[in-house]
């Protein structure tokens, strides 16, 4: 059984790098290989120019924030955070100083005497982060660290993680299946699918220029159209709804019918079935227009987009392009 195959990744020092993909796509396996919990059957893993493949986890200058936090239940918060320093035989005064510094950084000063069981989910998450960064690893691995938190807390932690990363300057390698999270936090993103990497790029490039249908679908919604033998995708917010017969200056237009409407507060999502085949999702800001101005279900509409917003996609995935 192969979990990952033909992965070729280069992560730059100090960047916030995200491995994004559905469950079972090999992103966590890749992370575990970097940490040393799993060995690649072939290939190398270099850390700052040194091949670490085959080294056990305790001999690698990387630390991990685990999905379930993995805090030691029998130790206090302070002992948890200082654990790495203690086993590295850092002297006591230095240990205390760095421990308090790390706890302050995750905004939990004064929580040192508590046990993990006495903390909330968000606080445990911070302790797990402090316990990892206190060792000043070259690379910090984060395995879906926000997965167990509720939406509000998750959004707050996203901002905090990003600012902590800026502060400590450690390379973050972040695993998630949440595309919004990936787009918000990352410097670069690798999209994983079925044990392979589909695309590695900046969030903006990934969203605006997905190379294939999988990336287009996973990072956004699947708006794939085929016209004249060419397949392309248009992002929902780039599509305008035009009045029938209106002049479409510089826009590519298509006629269609509104097949579905989903109201989502700030925006409303429309599904439009096109006369020329296929369907598109588009969103409109709910800016408070006059009643009757918004398209209704079943209405005939003309939709249009700027030609540069249609991103050509080559194939469903790039499986065939990867060497076995």
């Amino acid at each position: 059984m192969t979990a990952v195959a033909g992965i070729d990744l280069e992560i730059r020092a100090g960047e916030f790098f995200t491995m994004l993909g559905p469950s079972g796509s090999g992103k966590t396996t890749t992370l575990r290989m970097i940490a040393g919990f799993e060995d690649p059957t072939s290939g190398t893993i270099e850390l700052a120019g040194v091949d670490v493949a085959g080294l056990p986890p305790y001999e690698r200058a990387v630390n991990t924030v685990f999905q379930d936090y993995a805090l030691f239940p029998h130790m206090t918060v302070a002992d948890n955070v200082a654990y790495g320093l203690k086993v590295a035989k850092v002297d006591k005064a230095e240990r205390a100083r760095r421990r308090d510094e790390a706890l302050a950084m995750v905004r939990l000063p004064g929580y040192g005497d508590r046990k993990p069981a006495e903390l909330s989910g968000g606080q445990r998450q911070r302790v797990a982060l402090a316990r990892a960064i206190v060792n000043r690893p070259r690379v910090l691995l984060l395995d879906e660290p926000l997965g167990a938190l509720d939406l509000k807390l998750r959004e707050q932690m996203q901002t905090e993680l990003k600012s902590i990363q800026g502060e400590v300057g450690i390379t973050f390698v972040y695993v998630t299946h949440d595309q919004d999270e990936a787009l918000t936090m990352s410097d670069r993103i690798a999209v994983f699918n079925d044990g392979r990497i589909e695309q590695v790029s900046t969030p903006e490039d990934l969203y605006e220029h997905p190379v294939n249908e999988f990336v287009a679908d996973f990072v956004g919604v699947s708006n794939i159209l085929e016209r004249d033998g060419e397949r392309f995708t248009v992002r929902p917010e780039k599509i305008e709804v035009l009045a029938p017969g209106a002049t479409a200056d510089g826009l590519v237009t298509e006629r269609g019918r509104v097949a579905g409407i989903a109201y989502a507060g700030a925006v409303t999502r429309y599904t439009v079935t096109l006369d020329a085949g296929g369907s598109l999702q588009l969103v409109r800001q709910n800016v408070g227009e006059a009643p009757g101005a918004a398209p209704t279900a079943g209405a005939e509409v003309v939709v249009g987009w700027r030609p540069e917003h249609a991103a050509r996609v080559s194939g469903a995935t790039n499986k065939e392009e990867v060497a076995p």
């Binding site: 986890p57 630390n63 993995a70 239940p73 086993v87 316990r131 990892a132």
Partner: peptide, 10 residues
Amino acid sequence: SLISASEDLG
């Protein structure tokens, strides 16, 4: 994961 975490921390 606790055993992994301990190894991960050196």
